[in-house]
Design a binder for these strands. Structure first.
Lengths: 270, 270
DNA sequence: CAGTGGTCTAGACCACATG
DNA sequence: ATGTGGTCTAGACCACTGC
């Protein structure tokens, strides 16, 4: 079957006629069945009805209980699977996982929301000039020492409080309008969009704890040696060549990452 | 339709006969079609074939191109969706997203792997005693001041290097065998399983940058004031009551979190 | 061998957006 | 009204596990 006929709707088929199709016997409407099923099972796990190590009802049993097709059950189980609540092994069954700290994932969005949430944040361009590459920058951006690149420093403030001190190196290439674009970025949206320009499809981010040096501490208005998150970023173009490298230094007293493991706390209806 | 007949296999149905069923015309075999399609599209985005803002081919076009059913295309698009590569809006289409730093997610597994990867890590129980609750612990575990709880300190070393200094408070309840279990945990697997015992289905984790105080710095063999990751954990039982609160202090020079955004770098076959 | 999860099909119906 | 994504069905086939 090549499956290239146009988008169906030939009357008289192998389908059950529209008679007695459940219009919306759904529980709260506008919640898909697969989501409802996934949430229901998750709630049972959270309530201890299904305990870690237990085998879940088989998909046949589940589809009988919920009265849906196999595919819908499969989709629900897949959701639980990548929520980390269960494991499945083919031929054996689906089992409730015990809680593993390693499952936790932290979303960087929590940090970016800090300066996109309220509209009163501002970006100050402290410095921007063309400098010759040297030291570690050469290695990160794969440049020869002396190659020109754009060096920039920015400060992000909110309600008068400095939050983030950013240092960035960008490839200097007169064939790309990158530089002009970069220099003008004193808006927030621009800083969030990686590379701040088109042609950047991928990047690597690293976060670690650091102590602030004198200059960074001065800009962030904290004592030297204060702790901070260091968010290092490296962006590449379509050919995989690095085009931008830098770091965001985030005051530790202003930033934290929080997440939940196991059954989510915002457990709505059951 | 109640859909409770047993698991099918009645011969002679509405299905196309096994004649000319593609056994494995799959590209590298053992790769599902939906995954292959998702990866193929992701590669095109990474190569700049589909640019940010562009509309992807409609699902009808895609299913013609790949010769699969609508459901398979949908599944592939869903994968791209929660990889953050595209957005979909009903009635309009599927569009390539421009890279957003906020999309990044960091997996805590990177940290736990540090002491589960090699087998030469060890856990030292520095202290364990029953103390009356006081101060912030009362608030976190919802206790009255003076209520008994178990106070523990542990040190995780690897290859002789101290990596993590852990402080933990656990509810003292003689009806639960929690205490005995807790005290014996000097193994790594036990530390990873949240709550270290059954009955803990959910938890909250927070990570932030801190400066080490004298005691922590001494245990970790670094100068006081050195930076560190502070991983705070709070676990709850099936009724939602907090049962355990503590923190892992991780030497900054030993731990970092790395992630990738956009098209993944380990892009295999195209 | 039967039971389980994993994949896929060929449609249908719905909700939404646009001209 | 047409085209888009979003959901779902009824059933098939496959791979794996365990008896």
């Amino acid at each position: 079957m090549v499956y290239n006929n146009s988008v169906d709707s030939k009357p008289g088929s192998v389908y059950i006629p529209p008679a007695r199709r459940h219009q919306t016997p759904r529980r709260a409407m506008h919640e898909p069945a697969y989501l409802h099923i996934a949430n229901t099972i998750a709630d049972r796990i959270g309530a201890g009805e299904y305990r870690p190590g237990d085998q879940l009802p088989t998909e046949s049993q589940l589809r009988r209980e919920f009265g849906v097709s196999p595919a819908t059950i499969r989709r629900a189980v897949n959701i639980l699977l990548d929520r980390g609540l269960v494991t499945t092994t083919q031929g054996k069954g689906t089992f409730v996982r015990s809680l593993d700290i390693g499952e936790a994932v932290f979303r960087l969005q929590q940090i970016t929301e800090m300066w996109t949430g309220g509209g009163d944040a501002e970006v100050l361009l402290l410095e921007a000039r063309i400098v010759p590459a040297h030291g570690q920058v050469c290695f990160m951006l794969r440049l020869e020492p002396g190659d020109p690149l754009v060096y920039m420093r920015r400060l992000i403030k909110r309600a008068g409080i400095p939050l983030i001190y950013q240092v960035e190196h960008v490839l200097y290439d007169e064939h790309r309008p990158l530089v002009e674009t970069q220099l003008q970025i004193t808006s927030l949206d621009g800083l969030l969009m990686a590379g701040h320009a088109e042609g950047v499809p991928s990047g690597r981010l690293t976060i670690q704890a650091v102590s602030l040096d004198h200059e960074a501490a001065r800009q962030l208005a904290v004592p030297p040696g204060s702790p901070a998150f260091c968010l290092e970023h490296l962006f590449r173009d379509f050919e995989g060549r690095p085009v931008s490298w830098g770091m965001f230094l985030c005051r530790a007293d202003q930033f934290r990452l929080t997440t939940h493991i196991g059954v989510s706390p915002g457990g709505e209806e059951g």
